[in-house]
Nucleic acid binder design. Structure first.
Length: 425
RNA sequence: GGAGGCUUCGCCUAGUCCGGUCUAUGGCGCCGCACUGCUAAUGCGGUUUCGGGGUUAUUCCUGAUCGAGGGUUCAAAUCCCUCAGCCUCCGCCA
């Protein structure tokens, strides 16, 4: 949600932002009109209500004929007040409806364009050259099978496509990655959190996932719960309707939760393996900061993401995501894509977004500072999305015989194991 | 799932039976000022939140807000209904 006052003062800026995102520009004018209507109906109600309250005081003290006369007028007023109130409520709801459909303002520094128009900020590490090493790399599905780590066949039997079991060393690998991520986050001052995976509509909506992203959200209609696609949702909604003291910021949480995604419209994409699944676990960083600190915090989140991937010895590139591919909440977004050897390309592993005041406004989260109460900024970033990290890890560090070398930093979390070896060998 | 209790402006709390002077009481905390070698104590003032309007030195006018929504009424923190959350007990349960 953006600031209505900004929309009044500088509608062109909002129009430009909508245009760059490929979103509805007309919405801006509809909203301006609705806002005008809301304000005039509201001041009408204010006046009537004021009169009603004044008369009410007189009624309380009046007696006899005087009282009867007053009552006549107040009865009439009562109807007018009700009508004005209804009108105001309706106008207000219309404003909220339109405002809720407006995407966040774009950061002027974000690249303009569609999915393909990202800007590569840097490439880190060198993709391994298996040709030079003289063997053909196995993909993560094959490796997972050899190691007894991943079972997608039985998962299909039990849950259908896009599900998986992590078995044996695979299960241990997830726990190790999660522990390593949580340890890094905790050391950096994040408060570790284990969050609900089912949330109410308000939380989902406030975080900005029920707009264009709604088709990818699981919903339980009988109970009106949503399954979160990321712990960003419960972490953002954690402080819903609260006013936080400015001096306790920045407030940083590292959430661990399962994540559920419908993956609607992705039939035929990444059908093999565990790149694109309906359920996975993830450690997510989330920050509440003063708006003026948001940009710097965004860089910090990115750095923590890089630190984690560096420790795992992965090759990756950092991209600055283009305007059309940001999602409704983000002003700017950096993705880190790791090199996946058997695909011969970079695939998204983590993503960090600066949502500015957008989510905070929708969720009613403010900060109390010297300048009074004002919305704060929220940011999020993936520390470790488990399945894709496992994919990159297995494929990158495999050996000719199907063994996988465990990166040094991860070994303490795997009981000191240095190599994962195929089962039965 | 059943029965009962509770929800008031940061926290605690008065007010709800019996509707109007509630412009919501008091305490704690916090902020400012005064006093004081320093601190403390004391005194005075301020302190829910969100809008709209006027003037912009600053202040003034006004509406909403007592868990949420609806209803009754000229008038609702107060009466009625629905819902949510919390607590206690019973049942069930990892």
């Amino acid at each position: 949600m953006i600031d209505l006052r900004l929309l009044r003062v500088d509608p062109d800026r909002v129009r430009a932002s909508q245009r760059a995102r490929g979103e509805d520009v007309e919405l801006v004018d509809a909203l301006l009109a609705a806002d005008e209507r809301q304000r005039s109906s509201s001041s009408r109600f204010d006046e009537l209500r004021n009169e009603q309250r004044q008369l009410g005081k007189q009624v309380a003290q009046a007696k006899g004929d005087e009282k009867a006369a007053l009552l006549e007028r107040t009865k009439e007023l009562s109807g007018e007040v009700k009508a004005a109130n209804a009108e105001q409520t309706e106008a207000e709801a219309e404003v909220q409806r339109l405002l809720g459909g407006l995407a966040n303002l774009l950061d002027p520094a974000a690249p303009i364009g569609g999915e393909e128009d990202f800007v590569t900020l840097e490439e880190v590490g060198t993709p391994r050259d298996f040709g030079a090493e003289g063997f053909e790399p196995r993909d993560h599905v094959e490796l997972g099978k050899l190691l007894g780590a991943i079972d997608t066949e039985r998962a299909a039997k039990v849950s259908g496509s896009r599900f998986y079991y992590l078995t044996g060393v695979g299960a241990l690998l997830e726990l190790a990655l999660v522990n390593m991520a949580v340890a890094q986050a905790t050391e950096a001052g994040f408060i570790p959190m284990i969050t609900p995976a089912l949330v109410k509509p308000r939380a989902m909506e406030g975080t900005g996932f029920l707009g264009q992203a709604a088709e990818n959200v699981f919903h339980l209609p009988e109970d009106d719960f949503y399954l979160v696609g990321t712990s960003e949702v419960p972490l953002a909604a954690y402080h819903m309707d609260e006013i936080l003291d400015a001096d306790q910021l920045p407030l940083r949480y590292a959430g661990f939760s399962p994540c559920f995604r419908r993956e609607a419209g992705t039939y035929g994409k990444d059908t093999r393996g565990i790149i694109r699944v309906h359920q996975f676990d993830k450690v997510e960083m989330f920050s509440y900061v003063a708006p003026e600190d948001a940009e710097a915090e965004h860089k910090r989140l990115l750095q923590w993401e890089k630190d984690f991937l560096n420790k795992l010895g992965l090759a990756y590139r950092v991209i600055d995501v283009a305007s059309g591919d940001l999602g409704a909440s983000a002003m700017r977004k950096y993705d880190i894509e790791a090199w996946i050897p058997t695909q011969g390309k970079y695939r998204e592993l983590t993503s960090t977004s600066n949502c500015g005041e957008f989510q905070a406004r929708r969720l009613g989260i403010r900060m109390r500072g010297e300048e009074g109460n004002r919305p704060l900024a929220t940011l999020n970033g993936t520390l470790c999305a488990v399945p894709r990290t496992i994919v990159a890890l297995l494929e990158t560090h495999q050996l000719a015989d199907g063994s996988v070398v465990v990166p040094e930093a991860l070994r303490p979390y795997l009981g000191g194991r240095e190599v994962l070896t195929p089962v039965g060998k």
